[in-house]
């Protein structure tokens, strides 16, 4: 592999990885606060993609309106999922909310399969197919938009988490759920907010992926969700910078794996990496070590 090709693959990988990162953030924030693997998160991402598509097809929206529409619709969706399927189970045995999440995921997939049919729908060309050359390396306008949007969203997330009152409450709840509630933090509100925040990012991710790969379909959330979840774990679940790092790490690893001829093992690359990281550093790249309490 020449270094030009390598650089090219890095760009492809980082673009792919930043979409994983957008989904991974939702997993990681929710896990950080209520230790729930939210298996319905991939479906929120899928619905976001469909909302963006509808905005463009029916309302002739441009890409930014489509992104906004997807984010706005996904927030109440995720908040309602939490209200209906997870909140009644907050004190239930560990596995109950996970099963509930899988139930929600099956429900949403089937719903969209019935409404939209299983065939992928193409995204209308909202972005011109322009190519830019930086030396020998090629980058498309779509890739630039994805990278910029993802960066802006993640920066915004950092600001919310680090600089606002509700962000502070989120961090406190994540640190210690019971103490936070004793300190007068309305944890229910914080949890709803976290779900909404994660959903907005996933919805935006759905639209970006829809445009990048030009296809939107009801089962798109399954593999993407699972891989994004891997990214969250690789980065250290519960850690926001970890999810970003994990997503990009995974995207690049996958693209290089394919380029190196392990294309048929592509899905295995993500999961193999996952196991490797877990064995060497069980809490992920940037996760805090867990104390074994006696």
């Amino acid at each position: 592999m020449t270094w030009q090709m390598m650089l090219q693959q890095v760009i492809n990988g980082v673009t792919l990885g930043s979409t994983y990162a957008l989904i991974a953030l939702g997993y990681t924030m929710v896990y950080g606060i209520i230790q729930l693997i939210n298996f319905a998160h991939g479906e929120v991402y899928m619905i976001g993609a469909f909302v963006g598509l509808t905005a463009v097809l029916v309302f002739k929206a441009n890409i930014f309106v489509a992104l906004l529409a997807a984010m706005v619709v996904c927030i109440p969706l995720a908040v309602s999922i939490e209200r209906v399927a997870y909140r009644p189970l907050r004190r239930a045995p560990r596995l109950a909310p996970i099963i509930s999440a899988i139930g929600v995921s099956i429900f949403l997939q089937t719903l969209m399969l019935i409404i939209k049919g299983p065939q992928p729908v193409g995204f209308p060309p909202v972005v011109a197919n322009t190519l830019y050359y930086i030396g020998p390396v090629r980058i498309s306008l779509v890739q630039i938009i994805i990278l910029v949007t993802a960066s802006v969203l993640m920066l915004g997330l950092q600001l919310i988490v680090k600089r606002t009152r509700i962000g502070k409450a989120m961090r406190a709840t994540s640190e210690d759920y019971d103490t936070a509630s004793l300190m007068g933090i309305n944890v229910n509100r914080v949890i709803s907010f976290t779900f909404g925040l994660g959903a907005a990012l996933a919805g935006a991710g759905g639209v970006l992926v829809g445009i990048y790969f030009n296809s939107v379909f009801p089962l798109m959330g399954v593999m993407a969700g699972l891989k994004a979840f891997c990214a969250a774990v690789v980065g250290g679940i519960g850690s926001i910078p970890g999810a970003m790092l994990g997503g990009i790490f995974l995207g690049v690893a996958e693209v290089f794996g394919v380029a190196a001829g392990f294309d048929t093992y592509k899905d295995a690359i993500a999961f193999g990496l996952l196991i490797l990281v877990l064995l060497v550093r069980p809490t992920g790249l940037l996760g805090q070590p867990i104390q074994k309490k006696v």
Binding site: M5, Q8, Q9, N12, L16, V209, Y212, F213, S215, M223, V255, F256, V258, A259, D263, T264, K266, D267
Partner: peptide, 20 residues
Amino acid sequence: EQSIQDGDQNFSAQVTAISQ
């Protein structure tokens, strides 16, 4: 020869390889 998989959406790596 390149392989892909059903459900793949990103073919940049394979196409980069055949473009040589």
